[in-house]
């Protein structure tokens, strides 16, 4: 939990250091990306990042860049283009019906007059300058515009104060929980396995993200021994596949003869 918050904080600081980010090049525009994990009160459940995109980039690109900046896992999609997970959350399922509703990532366009429920997908929309794009995880939503909108301001001006340079801000909720006790990754892993929606008062959401972030971080750090072991298993799998293929061909030929 702490490391996750730190990461976001670091990302925020990195972006916030004056001069660290170059000024917008010609045709680039700033997009505010708001991701709300929907965990509830008092939790580091959401973050906001401002990214700059070349003209013609899609909102999905903006989300991907924001996740890269935050060193979080990329979002995944179903083959029909539905957004399944952001930063590895939720770990399974993609728009899962629940006993009373629908658990999914709701997508909103933000403007000066508030959030509006998007009827299209992020890959279909070309990012226009000065917009905000919001995603909120609805644990027990309706799957229609009546679903809850992301918290905080929706206007891009409020989220990214200066549109001439790339800035990042984090919501207060994130920065206030930096001092939480460290949670071992192995202990948190088990809480991430169910595809069930989290209980409303759950504190696991951040740890999910935490874990995801930690894994991403581990991958980034190139901690050599586990990576090479994993690669060896994968190579063994490919080898087994090749052996199976050859055996199948031989058996097929023999059965024909």
């Amino acid at each position: 939990m702490r490391r996750f918050s730190l990461l976001i904080l670091a990302a925020a600081l990195l972006g916030a250091v004056p001069g660290a980010a170059p000024a917008l090049a010609a045709g680039e525009r700033t997009i505010a990306v708001v991701v709300d994990f929907g965990a509830g009160e008092g939790l580091p459940a959401s973050f906001t990042l401002c990214v700059k995109e070349p003209s013609g980039a899609t909102d999905a690109q903006a989300l991907a860049d924001a996740l890269t900046t935050a060193k979080l896992r990329q979002s995944t999609y179903s083959s029909s283009g539905l957004l399944c997970s952001i930063a590895g959350y939720p770990s399974t399922g993609c728009g899962v019906p629940t006993s009373s509703g629908y658990s999914y990532w709701a997508y909103f366009h933000g403007g000066a007059e508030g959030w509006s429920y998007a009827s299209d997908g992020p890959a279909e929309r070309t990012a226009s300058p000065g917009t905000a794009e919001g995603w909120r995880f609805e644990r027990d939503g309706r799957g229609n515009p009546s679903d809850q909108v992301p918290p905080g301001p929706s206007g891009p001006a409020a989220l990214c104060p200066s549109s001439t340079e790339t800035t990042s801000t984090t919501l207060p909720a994130v920065t206030t929980t930096t001092e939480a006790t460290p949670v071992p990754i192995s202990a948190t892993a088990s809480s991430t396995t169910t595809s069930q929606p989290l209980p409303p008062t759950s504190t696991t959401t951040p740890s999910v993200v935490h874990e995801a972030a930690a894994r991403t971080a581990a991958a980034h750090e190139h901690s050599s021994s586990p990576a090479s072991a994993s690669a060896m298993v994968t190579v063994a799998a490919v080898g087994l596949l090749a052996v199976l293929g050859v055996v199948a061909l031989v058996l097929r030929r023999r059965s024909r003869a």
Partner: peptide
Amino acid sequence: LQVIFGQRVPG
């Protein structure tokens, strides 16, 4: 089908 109806998928 993906090629025909897959416009929404980013990448």
